[in-house]
Amino acid sequence: MSESNSMPRHHKPKPLAPVDFANFPGGADPARVSEAAHLAAQALVHHGRESTDPEVTRRLVELADQQGVEAVAEMWAESPARSLPGALWRLYALRAAIQQNPERVAAFYSAGKDVAQVSKVVAGVAEPLGADEVRAMADTILSGAFEGEFDVALERFAAFCRVVALGQTNHADSSEASNGNRATMLTRNARQLVRTAEDLEHSAAAWRRGELD
């Protein structure tokens, strides 16, 4: 394993999306917002996990819908990938991307699920698979970050990323002869998704050790 994969990467993360990584704008210089980002993330997770009111969980899940994904990015997109605010940003950004184009995400997931059997089981998308099932999965995983085990939510989205990445790779292989540009884009996106999965898995392990902040 390379050093870059075994150690937390404290570079500025880019906004992430599981389909084509739409560039949601990020916030200001992380040196100036780091403390506020960490405090906001800790407060939000603590509030969600302390509450037993389903309405509170629903509002937290729909935070990006209500405030705009750009507002969420302003809080957390500049945080280190392997930190609590960085992990939260990835959960919200992934859900936002799924909500934007669930049919396309479902197609990529379908193309990868038979190859990535273990990740498919961990992700837990209902079958038969379609846009509604993918949307419901995203909401269920994000709800679990507040109602259940935070590390499990991170690992489920990581597994989902790995399945979608394999699906994108399969689509890239199929497009290579007829549309080289699309194949290149899908291959690049798949690699980004794998890195996102690695960051989420690292964050899940850190959470279990009590070291994710």
Rank of each mutant, 00 (worst) to 15 (best):
A97V: 01
D139S: 10
D132C: 04
P102C: 06
E103G: 15
F108A: 14
F108C: 10
V118Q: 15
D132L: 10
S110K: 09
S110L: 13
L91Q: 14
V125H: 03
E133M: 09
A116G: 06
Y92Q: 04
V121I: 14
I98V: 13
A116T: 03
G130V: 05
R90C: 04
K113S: 11
W89H: 11
V118E: 15
V115Y: 11
A136W: 01
Y92N: 02
V115I: 09
E133F: 02
D114A: 08
A131W: 00
K120Y: 05
A106Y: 02
V105D: 03
R135V: 05
V105K: 02
N101I: 01
V134P: 00
A123P: 03
G124F: 06
Y92T: 03
A96R: 11
G130P: 02
W89A: 09
K120G: 05
A93Y: 15
A111Q: 15
R95V: 01
A93G: 09
A97W: 07
R90D: 03
A87I: 06
P102Y: 00
G112R: 12
F108H: 15
W89D: 01
R95T: 05
S110Q: 13
A97Y: 05
W89P: 01
A106I: 10
V134K: 00
M137K: 02
Q100W: 06
A87M: 13
V105W: 05
D139Q: 08
A97I: 02
S110F: 04
A96S: 13
P128G: 06
D114E: 08
K120H: 11
Q117F: 11
A111W: 11
F108M: 14
I98E: 01
R135I: 02
R90A: 11
V122R: 02
S110I: 03
K113C: 12
A93R: 12
L91G: 07
V122C: 15
A106Q: 05
A136M: 05
A111G: 15
A93Q: 14
E127R: 03
Q100F: 04
R95N: 06
A131E: 02
Y92G: 03
G124P: 12
A123C: 07
A126S: 10
G130L: 04
A123D: 04
Y92F: 15
V134R: 00
V125T: 13
A138T: 00
G130W: 00
L129V: 11
R95K: 13
S110D: 15
A126W: 01
D132S: 13
R90P: 00
K113I: 06
